[in-house]
Design a protein around this nucleic acid. Sequence first.
DNA 1: TTGCCTGCAAATCCTTTGCATACTG
DNA 2: CAGTATGCAAAGGATTTGCAGGCAA
Lengths: 154, 154
Amino acid sequence: MDKANYNEILNRFKVLIKENGMKYTKQREVILETLFFSNNHFTPESLYLLIKDNYPKLNIGIATVYRTLNFLEESELATSISFGMHGKKYEFGGKEHHDHLICKECGDIIEFLDDIIESRQEEIAKKHNYKIQSHNMQIFGVCPKCQKNKKFKG
Amino acid sequence: MDKANYNEILNRFKVLIKENGMKYTKQREVILETLFFSNNHFTPESLYLLIKDNYPKLNIGIATVYRTLNFLEESELATSISFGMHGKKYEFGGKEHHDHLICKECGDIIEFLDDIIESRQEEIAKKHNYKIQSHNMQIFGVCPKCQKNKKFKG
DNA sequence: TTGCCTGCAAATCCTTTGCATACTG
DNA sequence: CAGTATGCAAAGGATTTGCAGGCAA
């Protein structure tokens, strides 16, 4: 399932690369692949480290990760969220839109989608004559796990 | 009106300063004052430049602006929002909670508050057993002014 | 073979820190 | 007068850029 889905994404990626007069490289492929399959939120550095781990034979530098993430974001194959504390994180961008519930203690992230909030947002933008492009909402709190830990600590 | 309000804030600020064994300085006062009265969203640098402009006799360094903004934010007298493009911005924090509608072209910001969204957020956090602390929502779009400009350009 | 990509290291940007001096209380 | 705050400049951390060699087309 995921696999089939991925091939579609990979094709879109290849087309984008060709359209931009760029070249298809192993590094670029691996970055997209990791974003897609790990289904996680990465800082450029954490993504870089994971790739080094998973593909020990592949030579990769962090500059390439930055460069590729920027390209992927422009192409809407990656999305970034920036939240105060834990820096800017990227995730695969081809998923359905969703928002984030973030633990301020451990940085853990839960994704959610709420139709009511979505439609209110549209209305608010319309009310102010803004042409809505995207939006981005984060709820910050303490996750159940960290609430427990805090209790034990004091 | 604002003036009376400001005195209250200023008192709170002075108390905070005393409580923390800190000292009341002109620089700190001017930073709070500017945040309060300009009712605007500032990067540390833009705030710094405005103050230099408005108080030519006052000697102020950007390090002090950073230091004071950090203190104000901890004390909840300033709030920051970070949105991808236009960096991290601070605003006076004593206002009622609100969210932001941001123009991606010119960085213009409209504040809004929507009760329905607010209550949905509480419910979502509760559903996931998160202890909610804060949240932060940005809608990105193009403001009416920039929509017009775009038309003329192309 | 051409010219884009890469890793590396240097450069840049933003923010914080160390230090000597200035000022508050 | 003691001890904090300041401005400046240097240090730090994150991201971008320049370059010489490597690889895709």
